[in-house]
């Protein structure tokens, strides 16, 4: 898959999946912002990211779901009904689970279009103001989402 094909029909299922998942699972309204290439737009603070590999017969890639600590804690509070003051080890898997659900929704839509994306398991990356490194020479697309509590984003990269 050419990275030029990282187009709206490929991206939209991830955007729709994120909005739907947060709405249903966290009672959280998110609005998609204008996508941009990583390094060519504003820096969005990231303290926790869930990363999942995209594997299909024709291309590989990665998808990362990235949150600031403050926004993630609010999201988890809304999802679980429990207030936390820091991201504990136990709370980390909430990011993983959210990405897993978003990925599952996007995968279903994309595979109906013939992408043949395989199952995958997310991993968690932690750090203050971290930057997710995608192992690809292709540009990384950043999909920002606005909420009443701040911005979070997804990053998508594909590799032929």
């Amino acid at each position: 898959m050419d990275h030029k094909k990282l187009d709206i029909s490929f991206i939209n299922p991830f955007i729709d999946g994120a909005i739907e998942t947060l709405k249903i699972q966290c009672s959280f309204e998110a609005k998609a912002g204008k996508p941009f290439l990583k390094g060519k737009g504003p820096e969005i603070k990231t303290d926790i990211a869930a990363v999942i590999g995209l594997t299909s017969a024709t291309f590989n890639g990665t998808v990362a779901l990235c949150f600031s600590e403050s926004l993630f804690l609010i999201m988890m509070e809304k999802m679980l009904g429990e207030k936390n003051t820091s991201i504990t080890k136990e709370l980390e898997d909430g990011a993983s689970e959210l990405l897993n659900i978003i990925f599952g929704q996007a995968k279903k839509v994309l595979n109906e279009k013939g992408y043949k994306i395989e199952k995958a398991i997310p991993t968690i990356v932690r750090g203050s103001n971290l930057s997710v490194k995608h192992l690809s020479s292709n540009p990384t697309l950043v999909l920002p989402f606005e909420t009443e509590f701040g911005i979070f984003h997804m990053e998508i990269t594909t590799q032929d």
């Binding site: 679980l80 136990e90 709370l91 898997d93 689970e97």
Partner: peptide, 10 residues
């Protein structure tokens, strides 16, 4: 996943 168990329980 602990968070999912908590969510189902909630």
């Amino acid at each position: 996943m602990l968070t999912m168990r908590k969510l189902v329980k909630k």
